[in-house]
Amino acid sequence: MPSIAVIRFPGSNCDRDIITGVASITGTKPSAIWYKDTDIARHDLIILPGGFSFGDYLRGGAIAARAPIMDEIQDHVWRGGYVLGICNGFQILTESELLPGALMRNVGLKYVCRDVVIKAHHADDGLLSAFKDGQSFRMPVAHNEGNYYADEETLARLQDKGQIAFTYTAGIGGDKHIDANPNGAIEDIAGIVSENGRVLGMMPHPERNLDPIHGGGGQDGRQLLKNLIEAVAP
């Protein structure tokens, strides 16, 4: 099993959830690393969890992205390490320019917490290698700033290089009345990967649909995380 660590910033609030979720899949609890610590070298996969790091003051993820530990994560990426950013973690990844584009305020101008269905895209290398093209997953989103934006040139490059990891798609039976795209993200983008496929940012929360008690039944989030862990496994 790969060695996995979860970074906790002041205001992170999904750290325990993703630790519990990953442990239920791998049988091993990921390490929790406080942001003031900087030793992350021995881990294969670094997870930036959801929450409101530093209160999301200024912009979501902006202050966390400038914390010293992000230099370590930058090095980890240069060494070919894997990084997963969920929700606020995705915001931190764009703010630190480990991923292109920006996450803007939801087009509805409100926080949105609801189930969405996302469609995955396969890539031969990196974190998307265990996904089938079009494989779909249901899970909740919960955010103020999930409206993904990239300029035309960046967007073309993302499409060209297969970096669009997940897109929102219609499809929850009873909820057809509700828009499939919860935040106005350009091209329905719910997640993207870096060019080498090893840094993934996504707005939906797989850790919120992986227990049989969860409203979505618990299968989809578990499968999604399994795919990611399988891709990292040396």
């Binding site: 979720g21 409100k110 917490c113 919960a142």
Partner: peptide
């Protein structure tokens, strides 16, 4: 109203708003 509330953080939500009662593990 309730879509503006995070109903799943902490990872233990079994039943959220819209049900008769909320329930967590």
């Amino acid at each position: 109203i309730y879509e503006q509330y995070d109903r799943h953080v902490m990872g233990d939500t079994a039943i959220d708003c819209g049900g008769d009662a909320g329930m967590i593990r």
